[in-house]
Amino acid sequence: MVSQGLLQMIPQILIRSLGAFLAVMSFGLILELPKKYLFHAGAVGGLGWMVYLIVERCSRSGPMAAFLSSLMVAGMSHIFARQKKAPVTVFLVAGILPSVPGASIYRCVYYMIRNAEMLSNDYLVETLKIAGAIAMAVFFIDSLFRLGQDHGKPM
């Protein structure tokens, strides 16, 4: 695994991004995402996960990968939102799904129940770092797109 270069990872990255695309579209059905936005939300999620995997491979840092991929996800969400006159949340919630630390929160609490405090702490810190990175990226892009708006409605 460690010896693999980025080039050899390409097929794997593509397959996993396809998985993210389809997973986000399926999750859209659970979140009642309107049909007309399904494909766009899937694309946001898939591309975001691709960036996540590439950055994670290069920098070996989950929070860094989450930050950069969320920057892109948030940027794309804002652009789609303007284009389709929809609230940003519609694309954003779906788009950040693959990278949000749901599994880490679960593992943190799971190891707490299992009395494995060290592992629990590790996952807690990871959850906070990744959620913080995503939230900061989203907040940053939000602020950027709100510059120069005349107190209009938030998109």
């Binding site: 997973a23 999750f27 659970i30 919630v93 950040i96 799904l97 949000v100 630390p101 749901g102 599994a103 929160i105 679960y106 959850t127 959620a131 913080g132 995503i134 939230a135 989203v138």
Partner: peptide
């Protein structure tokens, strides 16, 4: 368990 976990809620919280 992905359909159940509160990842989005946590991120919205932050």
């Amino acid at each position: 368990i992905m359909p159940l976990v509160p990842g989005v809620v946590f991120t919205t919280a932050i």
